[in-house]
């Protein structure tokens, strides 16, 4: 194969990289850099706008005077998306109505004394504990505050848990 004068000249540069290769590589590097920048921009554009409202400040919803809720009663607050459940011993817990299986809304069945999920028939007791699978976790709950005998629920903070524990109950 015959080599042109120019090719021979380029081969002979001292470090083995000729000018054309150098510019080729530089273009590639710039291209990759631009690609990375653009993807970085798109990804941060995507994710920065999301989840802005997952940790809003305390949003207290006033449920009413503590003594208005009888022990063993369950009261629905559909606007706040929770059930306020008062245990036999007087402790309060505000249970999210989202089933922990796949997120359907559970409903309280007064005569069976349990929450039942219409989607795949999971069941939970008045403390939110699982009575019947497929759900594997107790119902989520919202923190309850009792100030001057008035029950308030912080509907901005959803708490997840594996099982029911005594500390989750709040007393007047």
């Amino acid at each position: 194969m015959k080599k042109t004068v120019q090719e021979i000249a380029e081969r002979n540069t001292s470090d083995g990289i000729n000018r054309r290769d150098f510019f080729g590589m530089a273009w590639k590097a710039l291209g990759i850099l631009a690609g990375l920048e653009a993807s970085g921009m798109i990804i941060s554009y995507f994710f920065s706008g999301k989840n802005k409202n997952t940790n809003p400040p305390k949003q207290l919803l006033e449920a009413g005077p503590a003594n208005a809720f009888l022990p063993g009663s369950v009261t629905a607050f559909m606007g706040g998306r929770f059930y306020l459940a008062r245990q036999q011993d007087g402790g309060f817990i505000a249970l999210s109505l989202r089933c922990t299986h796949l997120g359907c809304s559970v409903s309280w069945e007064e005569n069976k004394k349990r929450f039942i999920c219409p989607c795949h028939s999971s069941a939970f007791d008045i403390r939110g504990e699982v009575l019947n699978p497929p759900a594997a976790r107790a119902l989520d709950y919202y923190p309850v505050l009792i100030e001057n005998g008035v029950v308030k629920v912080d509907i901005g903070t959803l708490k997840e848990r594996k099982t029911f524990r005594k500390e989750q109950l709040i007393y007047a």
Partner: peptide, 9 residues
Amino acid sequence: NPSYSMNPT
């Protein structure tokens, strides 16, 4: 209606 699930879903 987020408060009322269908059966079955």
